[in-house]
Each structure stands twice: as C-alpha cells, then as structure tokens.
Simulated assay, not measured.
Amino acid sequence: MSTFAKVVCCLVLVLGVANGQGLKVGFYERTCPNAEAIVNEVMTTVFKEALSLSGPLLRMHFHDCFVRGCEGSILLNSSTHTAEKDSPPNLSLRGYQVIDRVKAALEKKCPGIVSCADILAIVARDSVVATGGKFYNVETGRRDGNVSSLSETLTNLLPPTANITTLIAGFSAKGLNVIDLVVLSGGHTIGTSHCSSFSNRLYNFTGKNDADPSMDPKYVKELKKRCKINDQTTLVEMDPGSDRKFDVDYFTLVTKRRGLFTSDQALLKNTVTSAYLTAQSNNGGSTFGHDFGVSMVKMGRIGVITGSAGQIRKFCYKNN
C-alpha cells in the first residue's frame, strides 16, 4: 500500500470513530428505507393529539444517553422496579406508549431492523420540529442494550440543583463541552416540571425561610402561587408562555434571572455559557436552531452500541 493510501485509510478510520462509532445518516437506507417517514407519520398523529408530549420525549432521549449511553435502556421495564425508568429523576418522563406505538409500526413494515435507541433519537428530533425547531439529520445505526439499572441514574443524571462546576464536569465526562451544555439546556424551552424539582429555591433556601436570592423576586412570588410547600404533583412550564414552542425565550428568561432550576441559573456563572445566553437572547436566537441540532447529534453518539453487539428489540420495553 502506498504512503498516500495509508494516510487516506487512517483518515477514514479516524473519521469513522469520530462519527459515532459506526453511526451514519441514512443507516436504514437499504434495510428499511422509509424508517424515518414511518416514525414521522406516527408522531404527526401523536402531536396533533398531545403536543405536550414533545418535551418529555425530548428529555427521554437525553436521559437515555446519559446513563449507559444511547442504547435504549431507559425503555426497559423491571418486575422489581429497579430499572432506569423507576428512578426518581425519571418518574416525570411520559410518552413510553408513544415509543411502543412507533416500534409497532416499524415492526410491521421492517421487522427486526430498527432499534429502540434509534427510535428515541428520531422521535426527539421530530419533537423539536413539531414545536417549531429546526430540522437536523439524525445519525442512526445504534443497537439496543439489555441492562437497565436504577442506581446508575443517580450517579449519571445531573440534578436540577446542580451548580455550574457539577454541570461542566458531568457533560465533560460524556464528551460534551460547555457550549453543548448551554445549547442542550435550551431544550428547556419546551415542556414542564414538577414543583418538587425547584421548590427548594422558593422555600427555606438557606434555612432562614428565604428564597434563592439569585432568582427574580417577582418570579418567586409567581411560582409560590402555583407551588405550595411539599407540592409533588403540580406541573409548571419551564418556559412560561411558550412551553410548546421551540424558541429562544428560555435564554431570555435565564438572563433575567427567571430560570426555573438552579442548573438553569448556573449558566450565568460561566463566561462562555453566559455569553452564549446573552448573544442568543439579543439576536433572536439566530444560531440556536442550528447549534441545537449539532449538539443533539453529538450527544446521540454517547456510548452507542453498534455492529453485532447488543440486540434489536422486538418490543422496546423488554429484551428479546
């Protein structure tokens, strides 16, 4: 082999590794050419019925990827309630039946071909588009894992109470940088949260019956009307007024000290993330749509299973 050929070969190998270890856009082009169209057909119907599921379904992909990688373990059931979906951070997720519905449609047309992990990635993208976000190409080729552990969520999922140091370290551990952190946090532009995820900021924040001083006092007052002490059930919009619209309002709210979570407000504590927040807020989010797609694709490469490893589940909620 010539020196030039060796260099080209090495570059191809390096690019292959960088491109998600075997993932590629159009992975099912030959085996199930209409895979994404089938997913979109189901999701179009679902979102006509319940656009409110867009936020939870987007989060489901994120929560899957941060625990064991993007391999569908979030979807597995456990008779002993010890799976990822049984963990406190995941109890607010909704839409598992939608994933089952998509899987059934794909199995009817292309049995044993499309993984549940890929379904999560495609559905997340369709959730963004359905709420007005920018379309991005999803890399596919993931296979499904066969292990789901509640305990692993507690050490891998970042809590809404995380400070900026914890957030940066947690993202870095998954191969994501500070730009990915602030961009993906922008996913909070759609969806809701239980009061219990942020009530610590409203009541007795420092043990003196006070609220988080980093939060706009008027916003605190508004939230207290919705969330009483120890409220575990009430849902509050993460982006008030446009929680079903994928827009730049989230960044504007955070810059005004109206981020719902400690982890939202923490983005003002770093020069890079703070600068991005301010820039997107001031310019109408001119690059956010594109940036979000880039970071989602990057996140979708975390810990993937490809090739002959893992399995292609027939039903997403149980192993074959």
Rank of each mutant, 00 (worst) to 15 (best):
M1G: 11
V7F: 15
L13R: 07
V14C: 08
N19T: 12
K24M: 11
Y28R: 05
Y28G: 02
I38V: 11
M43Q: 10
T44W: 05
E49L: 10
E49G: 09
L53Y: 07
G55S: 05
P56W: 12
R59W: 13
H61E: 15
F62N: 12
F62H: 12
H63N: 15
C65A: 14
E71V: 15
I74A: 04
I74E: 07
L75Q: 11
L75P: 12
N77P: 08
T80S: 09
A83G: 03
E84R: 13
K85F: 05
P88T: 02
G95I: 10
Q97R: 10
Q97C: 04
I99L: 11
D100N: 08
D100W: 03
R101G: 04
L106A: 05
L106V: 02
L106G: 03
E107G: 01
C110N: 02
C116S: 09
A117I: 03
D118H: 05
V123A: 04
S127F: 13
V129D: 05
A130I: 09
K134S: 04
K134R: 07
K134T: 09
F135T: 04
G141H: 02
R143I: 03
G145M: 00
T153M: 01
T165P: 10
I168V: 13
K174L: 15
D180C: 12
L181V: 11
V183T: 14
V183Y: 00
L184H: 11
S185K: 12
S185N: 12
H188K: 12
I190Y: 06
I190A: 07
I190E: 09
T192D: 09
S193Y: 04
C195A: 06
S197P: 04
N200C: 11
R201K: 01
F205W: 01
K208W: 02
K208E: 04
A211T: 01
A211F: 00
D212I: 01
S214R: 14
D216Q: 00
P217Q: 00
K224F: 01
I229Q: 14
N230M: 13
T233V: 13
T234V: 14
V236T: 01
M238F: 05
S242W: 01
K245F: 08
V248Y: 03
V248C: 02
D249M: 06
F251W: 00
L260A: 05
F261D: 00
Q265N: 12
L267G: 08
K269E: 15
N270E: 14
L277T: 04
A279E: 14
Q280L: 02
S286A: 15
T287A: 08
F288Q: 00
G289Y: 01
V294F: 01
M296E: 07
S308G: 07
A309Q: 08
I312L: 01
K314E: 15
Y317R: 14
K318Y: 11
K318M: 15
N319D: 08
N320T: 13
